[in-house]
Write a protein that binds this DNA or RNA. Structure first.
Lengths: 331, 331
DNA sequence: TTGAAAGCGGTACCAG
DNA sequence: CTGGTACCGCTTTCAA
């Protein structure tokens, strides 16, 4: 089933069918009607590969994320998708599971697909990519990591500020013995969040902090919390790298009979929907995922081919959100 | 950057470069080495569109789901993706948000992409699709809805059995006044779950059931619960269409000071990870999402072109999971 | 083992 | 307004 068959049935040339498909206004309406009829009768659907090959473009934007299972990434993706659809673009996604190797594979796949734009919402990074991406001439937005380049825009959240707000608040409540629950991604923001904690510790001598890390999942948060408490350490507050791991932490604490926030305070990060629905509702830091999504999509689609007018690097300041999982330090 | 440039640099023909790319064994190893060198030096990545156009196939399988935000769908997707990757296939996804119109659009898009196989994990359905799909000759698996056809396999879970197990259990605990929290998808399994509840009510005269529905999200579950209780109705147990909405219900109940399970019991469905992590942990029904994913992928990739050897319709019996959100009926 | 060339299914330019 | 046709980048005979 192809253009030619449709053309034959409608008794026109393939060129005309193509025009109808791309609703060029030049086609006489009676002709158009015949073609449309033929298309429907034949249940014809254009071969997208042929289309993007011939056209040289692809009306598709690629999104690569570290962990779609985490609503943080998913929310950004959703926003991008809906913006893209609104502009007549399709979206194709890829997961890296925080694996650099997978990131490289995915990026190359996207290049191979000749996507019209690429958003990388990832914590990991591979230096060779920025070169390859540059030569590909594909507009790219990196969230969190990456270096600004001619066709690469950067967006990042000031995690340090976010963490500082959390620590400041906990400190004011009398917390001195802290725990940090991270996850296994060593690069990027996690590192930044972790470093922020370490720096705070250096800055405030009376602070003691121990850390543990596991997967970026509910279960991972639980495991990390378990190992954090394994050797008898008794923090009065646990700072989690994000909301998902925090919910995992809540569960571990609950099963140990440790009350939150009476016995220990817990904080999340990201402010995903779940953070209001878990029990107790999480004190966290809000990251405007919809705004990030809009900026990304906008930056990708408004690409002119020339250096963008907008800042090549955009930094977002996160907001502290107080809920029920934190309270005064015990003892 | 294309085959020809690589060919020129390696001083061979494009045919040979193509052979190297598809690692045909016929190429002399010294020649192959030259080509590989050229490819790397030029940072060449084959145009996937040209490839699948010329080859007539696409090494890509399509997955369409109703709501990727719900871990139920996401878990299935993850399994399919990992199986597909293991077999050298890529996966491209699409969301329908339970909208039939979007399903139609997505299916046509997949046909246009000439995917090697299509998995539709959806609750909605459009009759015209099965014809179009049939003519496309693409192997298809429908989960939940759809009619078996030459190239269409069907998988479904016996939701009725699952719901019956829940009701039976609640009934044995003395619950007579029930609530059902659904979501807005009118077709398919939801309907089946809802119908199962209704049928049970007819079967057991002493049962009273009222229902409410909203979106398939945490917030939706909360809203539905709110309207369920709005007019003073006081069920002793609330059956939720799935775990996500159940967690939403838990929150609404908590804010009203209604204790679970002392004052009212709550049940979920699906047994997603969150159901163990929320508080109280949900009594639910387990749906083996990994098994479903494996079956789907397997059925798609093992396609021979002829009617499959396996059953064209497969029904899965779900398992009851008892946790902490249910207890004896009060009063 | 390698090269030449005919498509794959569209798009878009140039005539008419 | 419509048709003819030269590509788009790659795969795949067919010969050499």
């Amino acid at each position: 089933m192809n253009l030619e068959q449709v053309a034959r049935r409608a008794k026109v040339s393939t060129a005309t069918v193509s025009r109808v498909l791309n609703n060029a206004s030049v086609v006489k309406s009676s002709t158009r009607a015949r073609v449309v009829k033929a298309i429907n009768e034949l249940k014809y659907y254009p071969n997208l590969h042929a289309r993007s090959l011939a056209g040289g473009k692809s009306r598709t934007i690629g999104v690569i994320a570290s962990n779609m299972e985490n609503p943080f990434f998913f929310d950004i993706y959703k926003t991008i998708e809906s913006d893209a659809h609104a502009s007549g673009y399709e979206v194709v996604v890829a997961n890296t599971d925080y694996r650099t190797e997978q990131l490289v594979t995915s990026v190359r796949l996207m290049i191979g697909r000749r996507v019209a734009g690429l958003a990388a919402i990832v914590s990991e990074m591979a230096p060779e990519l920025i070169d390859e991406l540059n030569e590909s001439r594909i507009p790219v937005v990196f969230y969190d990591v990456g270096t600004p380049r001619p066709n690469i825009t950067n967006i990042r959240v000031d995690y340090r500020r976010g963490i500082d707000k959390v620590i400041e608040y906990l400190h004011s409540l009398g917390h001195r013995r802290l725990g940090f629950v991270g996850h296994h991604a060593v690069l990027g923001p996690i590192n930044e969040r972790m470093k922020a904690v370490m720096d705070a510790m250096a800055r405030i001598p009376e602070l003691e902090v121990r850390t543990a890390a596991d997967a970026d999942t509910l279960e991972g948060g639980r495991q990390a919390t378990r190992s954090l408490l394994a050797n008898g350490y008794q923090p009065t507050a646990i700072i989690c790298v994000n909301d998902i791991t925090a919910v995992g932490a809540l569960r571990e604490l609950r099963e140990r009979g440790i009350r939150v926030p009476q016995d220990v305070s817990v904080t999340g990060f990201d402010n995903v929907k779940l953070s209001e629905f878990c029990y107790p509702a999480l004190t966290t830091v809000h990251i405007p995922r919809d705004r990030i999504g809009h900026i990304i999509c906008n930056s990708l689609l408004s690409w002119t081919g020339k250096p963008s007018i907008a800042d090549p690097e955009l930094v977002i300041d996160p907001e502290f959100v107080l809920r029920d999982s934190t309270g005064p330090a015990r003892q």
